[in-house]
């Protein structure tokens, strides 16, 4: 059983499927996320596939500030994803609210609603930075497995 779990986790990190949700960003980060999928950066060569269904996703890429209307949508998407799941917050707004932090309809960063694993700063971050953030997230996806392994040996 352990062997199968390790095998599945390995595969998960080799070909993670990601879901993108824009919760109130200015589009700057969204188009940079899309640019990651296109020929110049081409994350699909690493097996990263952009899916539209939260039930299929391992990674949630979120951009923009959370507002009072879409925080429910964000929480729903997060709860629909199967564990283990990684959340990557992209852009200054996703981190803290950024330039919009004082606006009346803004709740704040993504971490006010769902737990965030990786923060990618920038306004907007370059595609290289987004890819770096996703790779860091993948490290976290593998990490519990490795920790279990160590405990077993000790």
């Amino acid at each position: 059983m352990q062997g199968i779990k390790r095998f599945i986790n390995q595969l998960r990190a080799k070909s993670p499927w990601l879901l993108h949700f824009d919760c109130g960003s200015c589009n700057g980060c969204d188009i940079e996320i899309l640019a990651c999928l296109t020929p110049v950066y081409d994350v699909e060569r690493f097996g990263i596939i952009h899916v539209g269904n939260p039930f299929h996703a391992d990674l949630l890429l979120t951009s923009g500030t959370v507002n009072h209307r879409n925080k429910k949508v964000l929480a729903n998407l997060y709860s629909q994803m199967p564990s283990p799941k990684i959340v990557v917050a992209i852009g200054a707004c996703g981190l803290s609210g950024g330039i919009f932090r004082e606006a009346y309809n803004v709740v704040g960063g993504i971490d006010k609603v769902i737990p965030v694993d990786v923060y990618v700063p920038g306004c907007p971050p370059k595609p290289e930075a987004i890819i770096d953030g996703v790779v860091l997230g993948l490290g976290k996806l593998q990490a519990p497995q490795e920790r279990n392994g160590e405990r077993k040996e000790a």
């Binding site: 824009d22 919760c23 109130g24 923009g64 209307r69 879409n70 919009f100 606006a103 309809n105 803004v106």
Partner: peptide, 13 residues
């Protein structure tokens, strides 16, 4: 309303 932030009122501050 999913992306409404209230940018116009930021002119106050």
């Amino acid at each position: 309303g999913y992306v409404h932030r209230g940018l116009e009122r930021l002119a106050d501050i």
